[in-house]
Computed example of a mutant assay.
Amino acid sequence: MDYAALPDSYQWGNFTVLTVGVWAIAQRDSIDAIIMFLIGLLLTILTDIIHLSIYYPRGHNLTDLQRFTAGMAIFSLLLKPLSCFFVYQMYRERGGEYAFNLGFPTVSRDRSAYQSIDQQDVPCPYPDLDSKPAPRPF
């Protein structure tokens, strides 16, 4: 008995991305998990548009379940770009650097004033003679 108007591929695709999203949130230090979640969200936007355009129930004699299913699928599709924006912000917070700019105003992290702690200052081969007082002759 088929209750839903959308095919199983719609459900499998969205549940797979949901699973990757749970993994990305659980692995707080993983950049790979969050970029896979972002790419998955972008792909499901495309596949949701295709699924809704092909399998959207037509006709005036739709059941309440079919109307609800189509409404929730459309609502999910409308929220996915906002989800992509927040996932992209999480990607940037985790240290991900991507070359494209979406045009949104962001807070830049100017790191030019910071000194790296990986490299120590090279010691001077000769002591600074100008800072010491000259020895007094007797």
Rank of each mutant, 00 (worst) to 15 (best):
L6Q: 00
D8V: 09
Y10H: 04
Q11E: 09
V17T: 07
V17N: 00
L18M: 12
L18A: 12
V20A: 06
V20P: 00
G21Q: 01
A24T: 02
S30F: 03
A33F: 02
I34G: 00
I35H: 03
M36T: 02
L41V: 02
T44R: 03
T44C: 09
T47N: 08
D48G: 09
I50T: 08
R58I: 05
H60V: 07
T63P: 01
Q66L: 07
Q66S: 05
F68Q: 10
G71P: 00
L77I: 02
P81K: 11
C84A: 15
C84P: 02
Q89D: 13
E93T: 08
R94K: 12
R94P: 01
G95L: 06
G96N: 04
A99G: 13
F100L: 10
N101W: 07
L102T: 12
F104Q: 08
F104S: 09
P105C: 03
V107P: 00
R109Y: 13
R111M: 12
R111H: 07
A113L: 11
Q115N: 13
Q115W: 06
I117Q: 14
I117T: 15
D121F: 04
V122C: 07
V122G: 04
P123E: 14
P123L: 11
C124K: 15
L129H: 14
D130R: 13
D130V: 08
D130M: 11
S131E: 12
K132N: 09
P133A: 12
P135W: 06
R136C: 06
